[in-house]
Each structure stands twice: as C-alpha cells, then as structure tokens.
Design a protein around this nucleic acid. Sequence first.
DNA 1: CCGGGAATCTGGTCATACAATATGATCAGA
DNA 2: TCTGATCATATTGTATGACCAGATTCCCGG
Lengths: 268, 268
Amino acid sequence: MFKTSETMTRNIHGQIADRIGSGIVRGDVAPGELLPSEMRICELWNVSRTVVREAIRTLTGKRLVLSRAKSGTRVRPPEEWNWLDQDVLRWQMETSDVDSYLAKLFQLRCAVEPAAAALAAVAAGPLDVARIRAGYDGMVAAKSDEDFVIADIIFHESIYFATRNEFFWPIAQMLKHTLRKNFTISSGGDHRPRAFVEHRAILETIAAGDGDAARAAAIILLAHSIADVARMRDSGVATDPPPPQLTRARRSQGRIPPAISSRGMPSD
Amino acid sequence: MFKTSETMTRNIHGQIADRIGSGIVRGDVAPGELLPSEMRICELWNVSRTVVREAIRTLTGKRLVLSRAKSGTRVRPPEEWNWLDQDVLRWQMETSDVDSYLAKLFQLRCAVEPAAAALAAVAAGPLDVARIRAGYDGMVAAKSDEDFVIADIIFHESIYFATRNEFFWPIAQMLKHTLRKNFTISSGGDHRPRAFVEHRAILETIAAGDGDAARAAAIILLAHSIADVARMRDSGVATDPPPPQLTRARRSQGRIPPAISSRGMPSD
DNA sequence: CCGGGAATCTGGTCATACAATATGATCAGA
DNA sequence: TCTGATCATATTGTATGACCAGATTCCCGG
C-alpha cells in the first residue's frame, strides 16, 4: 500500500489533520456540529495541543471547519468546503466510489477546457506555447505509460496557465494531482496515435491564435476521452447509485450528461 | 474605510497572516525565496511564535508557501496558489486593477456557468430548484440594489449547487464572496426587467429538465452581463495594460475574448 | 416560571524548552 | 590548492504549562 499523500505524512500535525479531516468528510461529525474540544483531541491521540491547533488550522484553510472563539470548532456545510483541495478530494474518495468521481471530473473538464483552450489561443505568449509544446513532445517521446501520463498532464496544465487567467489555475492544480493518481490505468497504448493527432491539433490552433479552432479541438479530444472512460467503465464493476435526493423523473439518457454539445449565440 | 475581511481581523494570527500574505502577493519576497525565520517575524511584529506559526499554517493552506523542515518557508510559484481563496484574491486586488480582474472573472463565468446550468437541469432535485426559485423571487421582491445583488448571488450560487458536482462549488464560493464586494455598483435599476426575463428563463429550463435550453439561457444572460460591464467600464477610467510577456501579433478584437461563441460537435 | 449571576468550558495567546535536521563554515588530508 | 569530512549553528517541529477573555451552562433566588 502506498502512502496516502506527500505533505500529510511528514509532520505529526499533518497526520492528525488527516485523521480529523477524513472523519469529517466521512461524516463522523455532521455539518454544523461541534468537534471535540482541543484538549479532548489531545487525549484521544496523545499529542500536544500545539499539534491539534495546527491541524485544525489546516482544516480551517480547507474550509472544512470554522473555529469561533470560545464557542468551539464547527463543521461547515459541505457546500463551502474546498473540494479542489487534494486532501479533501482524497478523503472523499475514501468513502465515495471512483466512478461518479471520474464522471464529475469530466463534467468539470468539459466545462472548462474548451474555454481554456480558446482563451489560451488569444492570450498565450511564446513561453506558454513552448511549454505546451514540451508537453506534446514528451507525450510523443514517452517510453512508458507513466511518462505518457505525466507529459499529458503537463500539456493540459500548460494550457490552463496559458490563459493568463489565475482563476483557471487552481482547477489545473486539482486535475494535475488527481489525474496523476488515477489515470495511469487509462491511456493504454492502442489509442495513442489518435491522441497524438488530437493533442497536436490543440497545440497548433493555440499557437496559431485561433480561439474557435482551439475550442473545437479541445471538445473533440474530450469527447474521445469520455468514450474511453465509458468503455473502460463498462468493462469494470457496477456503476454509481442514483443520488439520494432524487425524485424527479427526467434524467439524462447516457451515463454522462451531454455537457459538451452547445448551440450558437448572438455575437454582440 | 471598511474592514478588509471577516475572518482575518478577529484573531492576531489572522492579522499576521494578512500582512505576510499581502506581502507575498505584492511580491515582497519572490517565488522560490525564503521567508524570514519564525523568530525574525516574531520580532518584527512583537507576537509570539505560536501566532506566527499559525499564520504560516494558514498561508500554507492557501498554497502560498511551503514549509520544509529545518530549511525554511519558501514562497511557492504563483501558478500553484489557490487563487479562488478570498484572501488571496483580496491581496491580489490590493495591487492589481479591478478591470482585468472583472474581465478574468467573466471569462471563468462564461466557461463554467452554461455547463453548470445544463448539468443542473438534469441533476437538480426539488430542493435545488426551490433554492434557485427563492433566489429569483428575492430578485423580484428586492427593494434596494443591495437586496437585488444578494438575491442574484443566491440564484447563481444555487445553480452551481444544483449540479450535484462538488468541483463546481468552490467556484461558486469564490464568485459569491467577490461579487458581493464588487457588484453593488452594477445592476442599476434600468435593466432589471430584462434581468428578470433572462433569469426566469434559466430557472424554468432547469425546472423543466432541459439541459440544452438551460445552457442557452445562461449564455444569453452572460452575454448581456458582459455588455453591461463593458458599458460601465467604457464610461470609467483607463483600461488594462497589455500583459508583460506579450510578443505575439494576434489579439482579440474586442476587450473580452469571445469565450462564449462555440460551434457544434459530433454527439458520439 | 422566569431572570440573573456565578462556575465552568473553550479557543486564543504567550513563554519556554528540547529535538532533529538542513545548512554552511571550518578544518584535515591528498 | 582543492577536496572531502566534521562540526557548530540556525531553523522548524513538538511539548508543556500558564493565563486570558468571551461564551455557555446551570443553579439559585425572585
């Protein structure tokens, strides 16, 4: 078994933050409820109050909890959690299934990446394009599947950076850390040639400054990636159960809602 | 002058985190460089090492710095910062201009909100729809501009939640905190009737479960919002200077890249 | 039954001390 | 002189104990 993370295992307060955070995401303490007091946590795991306080500070940074003075530390509603944080994501995956997680990840990518490619085409500088090209070259030169995935991540990450829009960057960071862990399985060697063509299309349209073409190229690549994932899933285990609150009748026909298809809009 | 934030002013370690974080974003210490040692910071502002450590822990949570044991605390590259964090955003706006900030914000919204509306249409439960409707009703019943903006924020935020995709939620949180501070100016009363129509269109398409129609409605609303902001900006001060790295020739004609227009894609 | 005050609980801050290691300077040897 | 090992120092991580002030709770008296 691999160690879960890089940052959380080194320090004691990281380990404590890991346990508490995992418990919160798992639902051990409901949103709005109070955590055990600091002294209580100290006794629970035989650590000093310093460690507990720094651990809670870490969880506060992830927006999992909110410490109000002299009143206690309460769990915030999940809607306010920083789900893009890699630790929160890891804790979530300890209980949730990977299937719905990958589906949601693709929903986000389908929403963001076409726009990111279009923005990159008009905002990227020569250094940005060189970075994207380096990712592409790394994919072509990759000897192993792992090298291929790493280069692929660099490619897409560089597109996010090339938008020159900082708001896109945290999303790229999340994808980077999460795809590195979960996508060594995918990208089997057989469909690499098509991946080369599609990635090269994105690279060249961005380099050419053609935003609409870059968006279209990104959409094509995502559509094929979705098909790959769906093919991989259909040959695997059971799929996601319906969400709990669900009562309405209408549902998307396919597994993944058609977040890609779009229609024109007035240009003014 | 208003106080800058809610969370940072109460505690001492929050104030210290505010000063250090502000300095980092301002560029006082370059990415990759070392912060002053903890004891040095203690002397600088006459605080205990406890508060300094908790302040640095807070900044670590925002991915501004990375503390390696016995080596020092280094500033991470800006690409890894959590730009969706409200404090990071506030520190950034202390030096950057509001114009380019609003433009980037709209780029993100144009990328995400149409997809969010489409997802919400197929994933929302009755509670989600009720929440969106409550936002719409609040807009209609709003007596003041401030009430109108608050209800508007609830409307859009609820759409993000209704996607049932956690990855969209941090974006909604960022928009919530940032639009509340910067958009009391906009939404002048004269174009409210059109806003009602467009918001109602989104609400009803989502309630009807029509994803494509919801996406189209969201796109229409965003296009008009962009026009409003552009109109507001053109009657204001000077605009953003070109980015420093820029060398290439092609640039978008308009102020804001056409991140909305798209073309069809194959459905399989 | 209600209101007020005291005891208590909690997080925030400070001070001190020790541990362990990364860093850089010093020193010995080739 | 250059190289390599050793050592002192600086820095973060952790523990401990103490105190403060606001929030909560509960009991007692009206």
